[in-house]
Design a protein around this nucleic acid. Structure first.
Lengths: 207, 207, 207, 207
DNA sequence: AATGAATGAGATTTCATTCAT
DNA sequence: TATGAATGAAATCTCATTCAT
């Protein structure tokens, strides 16, 4: 076959990635074989290797994509707020972000993402080189959030003497914990818990 | 050979389990081989199969033990409170429990336990039968906590119109999240985050 | 597309063959992939199969070419002798042939040829059909040499009661051995060894 | 099974090595699979890996063994000469060595050894690290031979002004060449060639 | 009961060859 | 014809489990 256009190539890579994401989420990294990915994607085993050098590379590429998506979610919500009324209500912004994440947990796509992410960190934790890379990316997200909270303080939404590092840590880690309990441990998240949780987080920002 | 006494048997099982816990925590379930466990425990490879039917069984038995330990931690702290002054201050109880868990995160034993637990849930999440079992055990812990909070309400420590299910869910899941971020993602937990976090949790119980 | 002229076709075949020779010599038959040949020749992978049916066929075609070249070397030297003085001094002829072969061993082209040839025989030795073919070709060279020696005897250069078969065998096989030790085993051929060797060979022809 | 004695282990290793030698000789290194070795040896695939870390290690171990055997052949013949009459006739010694090697070429064991050796060098020639190792071993043999010739000179058997390096090089390389032509190229070695060859070699030592 | 050697299913990856464009 | 993407057979090596001693 003649040389494929970059666009077509990108499409194939996406096809493989999507299929891999599905099986990784469903069965986990270790239990997933290249055959599974090949079958799910409809691409032959050898074809997989035309686009990716190894199973690990596929896994890492998916992780990179998910990172980006999660980072973008915040910006997306912020943009929506801006579009609606020109100025940003940071209280609403944080609230909406938390709500959005927690309410979407039953969507299959989000569920899979969460499963994938927790497994990603499990694996990454054993590999110092990977860990450094992953942490660097996470820190970008982390510091972006810190920045937003800082803006919220300046704009007069949150109390002044707040420990930025602490609040960012709490916000992200407890949010992850809610997801973990629901998605991985499989314990259904009560609707009331979402509300109480959000109020507790907001309390830290105000009181 | 003569039949081994139950005591000797139990000791051997413990020896195997302890060794397995160490290597599972350090390398993860998949990367751990029976040879590793055999080497670490000093028991021969064949000998391990005299006591456990499979690698999975060992993993599950460790998980069961860790469950029990975590459940007991709450009782232990409660007992200490009782011993000190005959009656229980539920506010202090919860506070101490959270503090105890979060402050001990740098201890190797706790760190290993956390690593192990998160991996346990990752694996369990793929296997419906296991998941049911694991959830049943978790629910014991969960409802025990609910019970304590209820007692706290009756004793007048917490506000009346509290949603027990929600608060228990939040308490355990966010605590897990703090552990996950620190232990698995490897992002150091700031001391100030511990304080803010505890206050936020307590706020839910009071306000 | 329009039919390619035979000339263009031949050029392409040569291009592929030259490239293949380079990579076969450098890395060996097994380690050489069609991709290597494609890259080195600048012809696409599919294009190679337009001209050759298989990797093996390429290898064999190169071998055939090298055979011819080696056979021709003798004729070439003989022709030079003829051109110089009309008649042939067979003593000088043999001597020059041996010298020429051994002295050229450090030239990259010769070195590569030698590497290629020894690998060729290694492979051929496992395949009876190929072996027969290869031997037939080798025998042509062999009997040509025998003929030259016979001519040398008739012309009065060598002793009469010589065993033609034996001397041809010795001459070619020991020459190969010298090449093998130098090129394949990588043990440098001392200049003095060349002289001693040639004298020893000539001694067989005279004494 | 309980721990095997070193003796039993050595036997198993030998069993595997012998089988591997047979298949390597018959089909060549590349075409030989671990399955072939497993089948030929009667040891399971996994069992092979209990004793050897890789296919390459097996190949190298065989090579080491063959090296040793070839080196010893010279000593063995020398010892026989000593045993027969107390002193050594170096002329006979060299002659017997050459005869012994060339006459044994039709024995299957020797034939296989030769096939194996030539392939060994083919492979080794691509790997600098291996090559260094192999050459070091070969040089031991080489310098041992040089020593013997030197002794022969001192004992008055060979001419004084001989170039030791040259003669050793010629002797070994041409001998290899005779083997190569017969064993690998498959051209039968005429009996008369053996005699002529030996005389030519001896001539270098005398004249 | 304990040992550790033996087994063999299964996983990743390579690459000669085919074939759609 | 030429291209290079796609295919899938095959090869090496791992390791949970079995079993002879």
């Amino acid at each position: 076959m003649p040389k494929l256009s970059d666009e077509v190539k990108a499409k194939r890579k996406t096809k493989i990635l999507d299929a891999a994401f599905v099986v990784f989420s469903a069965q986990g990294y270790t239990s997933t074989t290249i055959d599974h990915i090949a079958f799910e994607s409809g691409v032959s085993k050898g074809g997989i290797y035309t686009y990716y050098a190894s199973k690990e590379e596929i896994f890492l590429e998916i992780a990179a994509l998910r990172f980006k998506k999660r980072s973008q979610l915040f910006s997306v919500i912020k943009q929506e707020h801006l579009n609606q009324n020109g100025i940003i209500n940071y209280t609403h912004l944080i609230r909406d972000y938390l709500k959005s994440v927690l309410n979407s947990l039953s969507e299959p796509e989000v569920l899979n993402t969460a499963k994938f992410s927790f497994e990603f960190w499990s694996i990454v934790t054993r590999d110092p080189a990977l860990k450094q890379l992953a942490n660097a990316r996470y820190n970008d997200f982390y510091s972006d959030l810190t920045l937003q909270i800082e803006e919220g303080i300046h704009a007069g939404f949150f109390k002044k003497n707040i420990n930025l590092e602490a609040i960012a840590y709490i916000l992200l880690s407890t949010l992850d914990g809610m997801m973990h309990t629901h998605v991985i441990m499989g314990i259904p998240l009560p609707a009331s818990a979402i509300d109480h949780y959000i109020e507790a987080i907001m309390a830290i920002l105000f009181v």
